[in-house]
Computed example of a mutant assay.
Amino acid sequence: MVAAQKFNEINNIPIATIDGSVSSGTVWRFLKLETKTLTLDLNGSAVPPVEPLLGMLVWMVRDG
């Protein structure tokens, strides 16, 4: 996420928020990087049921 932020800065691409996700294979965590502030989903989301996970991914794409 920091690399994406730096890439955007170097190329003058004004993106204020970088959203991300990471998975261990069984648990997903969602992150948001705004300037130098990182917000991390500490609870995580289990893979089943998949609907809430897809909802988070759709939200990230629409909000971004």
Rank of each mutant, 00 (worst) to 15 (best):
A3R: 09
G44W: 01
A46Y: 11
W28C: 02
D63E: 15
V47W: 03
A4M: 12
T26N: 07
E9N: 11
P14C: 03
S24P: 00
S24I: 11
A4D: 11
N11Q: 11
F7V: 09
V50W: 05
G55D: 15
I13T: 08
Q5W: 03
L31D: 02
L42A: 07
V22A: 13
L42G: 06
T26I: 15
V58R: 11
L54C: 06
E34Q: 13
R29V: 09
F30T: 05
V50Q: 03
L53A: 01
A46F: 09
N43R: 03
N11P: 02
V27Y: 04
N8I: 01
N8H: 10
K36H: 12
R62Q: 14
V22G: 04
L33Y: 07
E51V: 10
T37G: 01
I18S: 01
R29W: 05
K36F: 05
G25E: 14
D19M: 04
N43K: 15
T26H: 03
V58K: 14
P14G: 03
P48A: 10
L54E: 14
V61N: 08
S23G: 12
M60H: 09
I13Y: 12
L53Y: 01
I18E: 00
G25S: 12
K6D: 09
L31P: 00
L42M: 09
R62S: 08
P49I: 08
N12L: 07
L57I: 13
I15P: 00
L42N: 04
A16I: 02
L54M: 12
L42V: 07
M1G: 07
T26R: 03
N11V: 10
M1Y: 02
M1I: 12
K36P: 00
L40M: 11
K32V: 02
